[in-house]
Design a protein around this nucleic acid. Structure first.
Lengths: 220, 220
DNA sequence: GACTGTGAACATATTCACAGCG
DNA sequence: CGCTGTGAATATGTTCACAGTC
């Protein structure tokens, strides 16, 4: 029962949609409804869920709570994995604040930085520690995941040390290509990259900017 | 000469690699070298570049400056598109600071927020304006792209207004599924989603946390 | 009757392996 | 010779359309 990567990347979206339905007191849903909430087609949603096993009822639909538990399980949400964040600059600070809320199924357990002016200060309820102690902190917290929000310089070194310390997944915001061994999972988010991708399509479309166009409708 | 989406999403990475080579004074490169710098295979790199036309020399390689110009052109970097950012909270502030540096080929032209305590303050060299004036600001700056860093509540409304005002691409950090018409490009980045994807693989691997493992090597 | 789960068709993306060419 | 560019093979992902089942 191996789940395709493309499916995995959509499971968090389905989980959020299921959370919303549950919060609204909805008990049962359909592939059409869930797909609409998730911005995908019903066939894709059914195919995706089928990779987690058969959890719907033909002719009826899906039980919201049951399906939600099943999706949350596959994403490891109940384990509430420990996360450490390295790089408490502007961006790291903002990410820490979001994560510290703890609503996403993770426990942010430590903040690390190299800047003496930041070390020792309190951010999002945690005291920033010296990145020199990275190995000890990762071990102490049993961190499975790390968020990397340092500048590009030095990011590969921090990454290597995180891997050696035993984290199994890294989410990086540093604008460079990081090397990790195959058994470690790396996801990269970069503002400039994302905007450049948008720019590509923008110029293909031949629109150089926002000229006065008739207000369009909403929805896709 | 239509470029596949998967290729487009890698062009910014190639561009950064080419920038590095140029900065190091390297005049000529090969698919093997560029691919190594970009973390992809040589065949993929050659296939990707071939979609932009034939810019290498068989038996020799690629001219760094020429290729860089060609990739930058396809990404619309020389146009230096105008960008507006909506939502100057923690995250928006950090994103504005990165963008304001202007090193990525964009001009950050305006900041918008709904919070009266933020409006009028100066961030990254720009005065935060009232989101009520979104339409006028987008028109005034001729903004082609927008960055959305508001909370989930109200994000769809802002998104609709950005679309109606004529932006052609939106990068959102709000944790919800936004609807946009087909002619507008939407990219979504969400911390919780990314971490949940990592968590999926982490638990598949059966590693519950960071136990003492032998320090591994680097590189992939 | 209504909705899921899935085989089959299609579309997209990656990789191999080598022909083409300076 | 050495390296690019690309046909062909493979792998991955999406969509259709309907059989299966409550």
């Amino acid at each position: 029962m191996t789940v395709p990567g493309a499916t995995v990347s959509r499971l968090p979206i389905y989980l959020r949609a299921l959370d919303e339905l549950a919060a609204d007191g909805v008990l049962r849903t359909s592939s059409a409804e869930l797909a609409a909430l998730s911005g995908v087609g019903p066939a894709q949603l059914r195919r995706d869920l089928s990779h987690l096993g058969s959890h719907g009822v033909r002719g009826v639909g899906y039980d919201v709570d049951h399906l939600r538990a099943r999706v949350a399980d596959s994403l490891g949400v109940p384990a509430r994995l420990a996360v450490v964040l390295v790089g408490v600059g502007n961006l790291g600070h903002a990410l820490a604040a979001h994560l510290a809320a703890g609503q996403d199924g993770f426990r942010l357990r430590a903040l690390l930085d190299a800047d003496a002016r930041v070390i020792g200060s309190s951010v999002a309820g945690l005291v920033v520690e010296d990145v020199a102690r990275l190995e000890q902190v990762v071990a102490r917290e049993g961190a499975a995941l790390a968020v990397l929000a340092t500048p590009a310089e030095g990011a590969q070194e921090v990454c290597d040390r995180l891997v050696a310390a035993g984290v199994s997944g890294i989410l990086t915001f540093a604008p460079l290509v990081l090397r990790v061994p195959a058994e470690v999972d790396l996801r990269s988010v970069d503002l400039a990259t994302e905007l450049q991708i948008l720019a590509f399509h923008s110029q293909r479309r031949g629109l150089s900017g926002a000229a006065g166009r008739a207000p369009g409708g909403r929805s896709r």
